[in-house]
Design a protein around this nucleic acid. Sequence first.
DNA 1: TAGATTGTTAATCGATTAACAATC
DNA 2: TAGATTGTTAATCGATTAACAATC
Lengths: 216, 216
Amino acid sequence: MAEEKKISMAVIRRLPRYFRYLSDLMKLDIKRISSKELSERMQITASQIRQDLNCFGGFGQQGYGYNVEYLYDEISKILGTDRRFSCIIVGAGNMGNALANYENFSKRGFDIVGIFDVSPDKVGTVINNIKVLHMDMLPEFVKTHHVDIAMLTVPNSKVNEVAIQVTELGIKGIWNFSPTDLRLGDDVIVENVHLSDSLMVLGYRLKESMEGRKTS
Amino acid sequence: MAEEKKISMAVIRRLPRYFRYLSDLMKLDIKRISSKELSERMQITASQIRQDLNCFGGFGQQGYGYNVEYLYDEISKILGTDRRFSCIIVGAGNMGNALANYENFSKRGFDIVGIFDVSPDKVGTVINNIKVLHMDMLPEFVKTHHVDIAMLTVPNSKVNEVAIQVTELGIKGIWNFSPTDLRLGDDVIVENVHLSDSLMVLGYRLKESMEGRKTS
DNA sequence: TAGATTGTTAATCGATTAACAATC
DNA sequence: TAGATTGTTAATCGATTAACAATC
């Protein structure tokens, strides 16, 4: 057991993109595709596609290309789309609400099983069929339900504290929506969204282009 | 006029992070900092910090380091935090709501001046003091109000169409929340959020770590 | 078989890190 | 002046691209 080879983050971050394009190809009823054709659609080099895919195995056939459905299935497996992850949302504000109502997540294997907040206005309300519980209930909840991921949409000032709490409760994945960079131990995986960073980059690029410069 | 030097996206994407850390330092009343100290806080190399900053100019002083407030101001200027951008939100669903209510944006210079939707349930409602208008009003609105950025939180199936529409109306920046990669002309800048990509990467990394492998 | 296209190795490019002379 | 730390050049590392032999 164990193909070694460490796969770089650059490659991993492209996987969902391959997944999306292959899913689209299937909808278009396209049965096979060469790295060249795919490269034109995705606007990346064919070379990169072949390199990326060969990190995980030889999914193609010389002279033929790739079978779309087969490749889709393989990338699904790599991404773990077959698995289901139990998720809680901490922070039932507008962003928490948006996440709780986003049906695509459950389609991809991410089930929201609990929502938590401290505000008396929110505790007891129901969002997408899930009752919002008080943060005080969190430890008990995590002990009685299996939880893989905590989606943190709490105010920036509280996020560190909450992150430490969920980590201590044994939750292994954090989806962080606050601007704060969480610094936690090695046994928790943090994926950041940092919306305001993204918006500021847009502002920067816009400013540059208005001044007549090009960005990349 | 015109320092040339093309600045790489890798550097640009780190700017908001510098901005955040410097902002924190100011709150802590720290007046000066060396690249070495900052590197320990930010978990990147001192060398990278100096390289990054020197893309834009020599903001430090040998033997002293960087004056926190001065550096903060300079990065603010680079990022264009002094400017204001007029933004509209297209799609008044949960995500549109979340964005409309996120007060940090206006703090950073991004003002929401209009919200649009097609659903009769939503048109006419008021979100954070802004009345939701029907999409039919969009062309007229953009002609009478200056709009820099369109934040697109419409369903995936509609996003291409909407993106083309706002581009044709002369809007220069798009903040895209749909999974679709927009392919538009050179005179519009697109910044993607791709939440589900981010979540799938979290799923992948979690799966790998559960199987005992390490990611990066 | 001939043509096409992969898997994979080698070359290139760009980004990060190290080193150090300049200078506060 | 001596010590500290930058700005900047050079070295290293990793990621992307090109090339081509293997093979369907």
